[in-house]
Design a protein around this nucleic acid. Structure first.
Length: 573
DNA sequence: GCCGTTTTCGGCCCGACTGTTTTCAGTCG
């Protein structure tokens, strides 16, 4: 957890330096350090104790000093001074699409605006256009950006919420008065973004637990407190709701507060027809007035004649009917995944070497991986040209020969260029085991243009997979205007596999789109798009998304053993 | 701010797109 805390501060510093107009490379040093620390497989505190901070790539004297200070005091002077200098509203404004540090500074300097509310007002009253470099179009786009930001206010990514929830639950579990604690709500159902982090805890001493709750690290503010409930704000900005129940009420409450509302309503209707009444504390037999306190969620579903329904499926999308007919999907499990087919190495913009990635993959129990770096046109990501690709293929063959680690497939994430052509010739693509095609430019093209680009890629006999098919970035960028129905049809017609990208801010395809693809007979892969060996662990987010989309092992190509997978990808060619 | 068989300063991702200008700056990936 402390890694996250240090990374958070470094990112905040980078934001503020950006507004100050500091040296680009200095800012990048803070961001890079933040990313490295966030993904560090060990506790930064441990490394600090051993005096090994400067062994971390990208951390020198200045940053390591700040890390020591943060670990000791929770903050550092440099950070606190910056916070005094830069109004927090300006940092917030960085989240507005189309508005960057330079414009924020000039707006602040010209009109004295230092909050999003003031910015919105200035845009509405047409004062923003008086700022040098801002015209009517920019004014309008800023207004749109503010709207978009408001719409997602307070929502956090699943990955962030889980991190916070784990920390709070482990603190709760360590209290001797707490017998059980579990995350509930949409977070337990593994929705891609959540508004609140809901937690229930079982205790016979609610008063004591509520008092101790406010002492949990990083709980910065208690916003509401009742006899058995408390709401708080976590340092990371997430809202936490804690509900206390008695130990015997724990499982009814777990079921009830996990939701969803639709699932609960349907379940209650079914219970009623069977003579039961379900609520958050018990199961009541209406005929005999007998009260039943289940000792697991399984017992609740059993009582209603149903098999257990996993939280990811509890969305009221027909799961109860399916459960009644014995037609619940046998959803894919993390252990079913036999390899990751979308990984970047240090040949392009990844941090880790192929060997390091292979070692990590082995530790995850994988049978194979594919190295799929960016292609030459994506300059910012250090896209590789034909020559470098040849070098990489040779390097991979060499590693495969010598090592008993996972089998490494050669591959590329080839850019679908703005004109719809691919960044490499068919001849080059034909020499690779796995070809992933994806879009990294021309995001704002109209529906026809961008749809046709992706369809053309599907039609290329060498393209195996379309990566992050909708292009959305959660909380930051909408999907491109592509017609997904047409793309699904093209994928189905050409046997092109679609990706469920596990990166926590993508999860693309999402659950519903993946379910639709499954119904059309399209195969999918769950990949991480990792740029760092540690990010291979992100695969769980993709698996959860697939489970929410009712996907089974047979729907996912990378659950196949290697020989079967290779045969499968040859069918199209 | 980091890094270095260029050892102590200078290099460290580039290019398209957009909107504001009138030749360019800011944003984004």
């Amino acid at each position: 957890m402390r890694n996250f805390e240090v990374a958070f501060i470094f990112n905040d510093i980078a934001d503020m330096l950006e507004i100050k107009g500091e040296n680009f490379f200095k800012i990048r040093a803070y961001r890079k350090a933040a990313r490295t620390i966030e993904n560090l497989p060990v506790e930064i505190e441990e490394m600090a104790k051993e005096g090994r901070l400067q062994e971390i790539e990208g951390i020198g004297k200045a940053l390591s000093d700040k890390i020591y200070e943060i670990l000791e005091t929770g903050t550092c002077h440099y950070y606190e001074n910056l916070k005094k200098e830069i109004p927090p509203g300006l940092v917030e404004m960085l989240k507005i699409p189309g508005l960057g540090a330079k414009k924020i500074k000039v707006i602040h300097d010209t009109l004295g605006i230092s909050s999003i509310e003031e910015l919105e007002k200035a845009a509405r009253t047409k004062k923003l256009r008086t700022v040098p470099g801002i015209g009517t179009k920019t004014e309008l786009s800023i207004l749109k950006g503010v709207e978009a930001l408001k719409n997602r206010a307070g929502r956090v990514l699943l990955a962030t919420a889980l991190l916070v929830a784990d920390q709070v639950i482990s603190s709760l579990s360590s209290m001797k008065e707490v017998t059980d604690a579990e995350v509930v709500g949409s977070l337990r159902r593994k929705k891609e973004m959540v508004g609140d982090i809901d937690i229930i805890a079982a205790t016979a001493a609610p008063e004591t637990v509520l008092n101790d709750f406010s002492k949990i690290p990083h709980i910065s503010e208690i916003t509401e407190r009742g006899a058995t409930t408390v709401s708080a704000i976590h340092d990371m900005g997430a809202k936490i709701d804690l509900i206390l129940v008695t130990p015997q009420e724990f499982y009814p409450a777990l079921r009830f507060f996990t939701g969803s509302v639709d699932h609960n309503t349907e379940l209650q209707s079914l219970a009623q027809t069977m003579g039961y009444d379900l609520d958050e504390t018990k199961i009541l037999n209406k005929n005999s007035n007998e009260i039943f306190y289940p000792e697991s969620e399984i017992q609740i579903y059993e009582k209603l004649g149903l098999p257990y329904i996993i939280p990811e499926l509890r969305e009221g999308r027909g799961e109860i009917k399916a459960a009644r007919c014995g037609k619940l999907p046998e959803v894919v499990e993390l252990e079913d995944i036999k390899g990751d087919l979308h990984i970047h190495s240090n040949f392009s913009d990844g941090i880790s070497s192929i060997k390091e990635i292979a070692k990590k993959a082995k530790s995850l129990g994988y049978e194979y991986i594919a190295i799929t770096d960016h292609s030459k046109s994506l300059k910012i990501a250090g896209g590789i040209d034909e020559e470098k690709l040849k070098e990489q293929i040779a390097a991979i063959k060499e590693i495969n020969k010598k090592s008993d680690e996972v089998y490494i497939l050669t591959g590329i994430e080839v850019d679908i260029l703005s004109d719809g052509t691919l960044d490499f010739s068919d001849d080059v693509l034909s020499k690779l085991d796995i070809v992933i095609a994806s879009i990294h430019s021309g995001f704002k093209q109209d529906t026809d243009t961008i749809t046709n680009r992706i369809i053309t890629a599907c039609q290329n006999p060498h393209v195996d997979i379309i990566a992050h098919p909708t292009g959305r970035i959660l909380g930051r960028r909408d999907p491109y205007a592509a017609d997904m129905d047409k793309i699904l049809e093209a994928a189905a017609a050409t046997n092109t596999v679609l990706e469920i990208n596990s990166s926590p801010d993508r999860l693309d395809l999402n659950d519903l789109m993946a379910q639709k693809a499954k119904e059309m007979g399209i195969k999918m892969v769950i990949d991480t798009d990792a740029h760092d060996k540690e990010a291979l662990e992100d695969i769980k987010y993709g698996v959860w998304t697939a489970r929410r989309g009712w996907l089974e092992e047979k729907d996912i190509a990378n659950t196949m053993p290697l020989d079967e997978l290779l045969k499968f990808f040859k069918v199209k060619k």
